[in-house]
Every structure is written in structure tokens, then in C-alpha cells.
């Protein structure tokens, strides 16, 4: 028998007025896996993250974590269930230093990693007393990652972690994500437009378009999927 998935998004729909942001979307993530979520702009990727973290309540469907529904859990209590995330547009506490931002993550800590450990791990220790908003964009994304890690999550949701990074930094990020997944015993769901990164780190990939799932499979399968190429990847050049 297959093990129970750690995360199950089960037939979830979410509407905003007349717009169907998610239309009966199902996806699952097994413990220890790195899963990619890709698709065109406005496909519903960030909405899916917001449903999983309970910022949104789905109109239909259920989200289960470790076999139990998350719908009875408020957004503010999600971190204590063991789910942490980063945001597409960076949502740090701009008036706070790096270390204080990470401490905010640690207030809900369940893991054994201290704030200092995490700061060293993501290579932010030397700038820990700097104001978070003074730092370059790519570094701010790393502060968000540290804040998420400090809460000791089992499931980590990364929304466009490669934003603001140059080619060789993205390559290093890929290696880093794989190592972090093992070192912190994480399960990772990652939204990213940098295909080199997604295809390099993900075990499986789900593809959304206009709120519907149009593809699923290993990176190689998804890259060869005609519907995905037409909606998203474009013909290889």
C-alpha cells in the first residue's frame, strides 16, 4: 500500500466574484518529496498556496495534512500544524532586523534548530542585525526562507525562490534546496518560473492553467507534454 500523502489538495475550487481561480484542483505531495507547481500567470498557483495556508477558504473541496483536514485550522495556527511558506513578493517585517524577522518564525518553533543555527545555515549570520528592507531582493527572499525554517516546518511552500537571482545563484539555490530538504527533513512544494530550477530539483511537477490542472508527472514527462508546452513552456528554442 502506498503511504498516505503528507499533503492532499482534494477537488478544491476557489472563486473570486466571477473569476474561477481554482477549478476542482487535486494534487498530492508525499512526505520527503519536492514537488513543483508551474503554470502561466494567473493560473492559480499562489491561490493554491493561499488555500493550503488557510489565507483563503475554498468554496469546494478539502485540504488534508497528514490525513486530517486543515479547514478547521485558522491561518494563524497553520504554522503550528507544521506548515511554513515564503511569499512571491516578499512579505517581511520591514521595520525589523533580519534576526528579529527570523525570531518571528521561531515563536512557533517545534523543531530543534535555533535561530542562530538557521541564520548560519542560510548564510545570513553576518547580516543578522541589518534592517531587512535594506537588503537586496534576493537576500530578502533568503530572510523569508530563514523565517520559515525557524518555525521547524514539515511542509515548506516556496513561492518563486529564484526571483532576483542570477544564473549561477539559481544553480546554487537548486543544490541548496535539495540539501535543505534532507537536513531539515522537509517536504517541499515549490512555485517557480525558472524551469532550470524546477526541473532540476522537483521529483514531480503539477501544471495549472486557468485554475485547472492540465498536467502532472516527472519533470521529463511534463516537459514533453504538448498541452504544457502550448500553455506555458513555448516551443523549445
Amino acid at each position: 500500500m502506498r503511504p498516505l500523502p503528507l499533503l492532499e489538495v482534494d477537488n478544491v475550487s476557489k472563486r473570486f466574484g466571477g473569476i474561477v481561480a481554482l477549478d476542482a484542483v487535486s494534487l498530492s505531495v508525499e512526505a520527503g518529496e519536492i514537488v513543483g507547481l508551474i503554470g502561466p500567470n494567473g493560473a492559480g498557483k499562489t491561490t493554491a498556496f493561499n488555500v493550503i495556508t488557510r489565507l483563503y477558504t475554498p468554496d469546494e473541496g478539502d485540504v488534508r495534512f497528514d490525513g486530517a483536514s486543515l479547514l478547521g485550522t485558522q491561518a494563524s495556527a497553520i504554522v503550528r500544524r507544521g506548515i511554513a511558506r515564503t511569499f512571491q513578493n516578499v512579505e517581511l517585517f520591514h521595520g525589523l532586523s533580519v534576526i528579529d524577522n527570523v525570531r518571528v518564525g521561531a515563536h512557533a518553533r517545534q523543531g530543534e534548530h535555533s535561530v542562530d543555527d538557521v541564520l548560519f545555515y542560510v548564510n545570513l549570520h553576518s547580516v543578522r542585525h541589518r534592517g531587512a528592507s535594506e537588503l537586496p531582493y534576493g537576500t530578502q527572499k533568503r530572510v523569508e526562507l530563514a523565517r520559515a525554517l525557524a518555525s521547524g516546518p514539515r511542509l515548506l511552500l516556496l513561492d518563486e525562490p529564484a526571483g532576483g537571482l542570477s544564473h549561477d545563484e539559481v544553480e546554487r539555490l537548486g543544490t541548496f534546496i535539495r540539501r535543505m530538504c534532507g537536513d531539515f527533513e522537509l517536504t517541499i512544494l515549490i512555485v517557480e518560473h525558472h524551469m532550470g530550477l524546477v526541473m532540476g530539483v522537483a521529483d514531480r511537477v503539477h501544471v495549472l492553467d486557468f485554475g485547472r490542472k492540465i498536467g502532472e508527472g516527472t519533470p521529463a514527462e511534463v516537459q514533453a507534454n504538448q498541452a504544457v508546452i502550448e500553455a506555458y513552456l513555448g516551443a523549445p528554442t
Binding site: 500567470n41 526571483g163 518560473h193 506555458y232
Partner: peptide, 13 residues
Amino acid sequence: DEPSLGLAPLIVK
């Protein structure tokens, strides 16, 4: 400043 940030590959092109 980084027009491609957050945009799908087809849109960036």
C-alpha cells in the same frame, strides 16, 4: 528592474 520577475517563460519572451 527585472521585467521577467514572476512571469511565465512565454510572457517573458
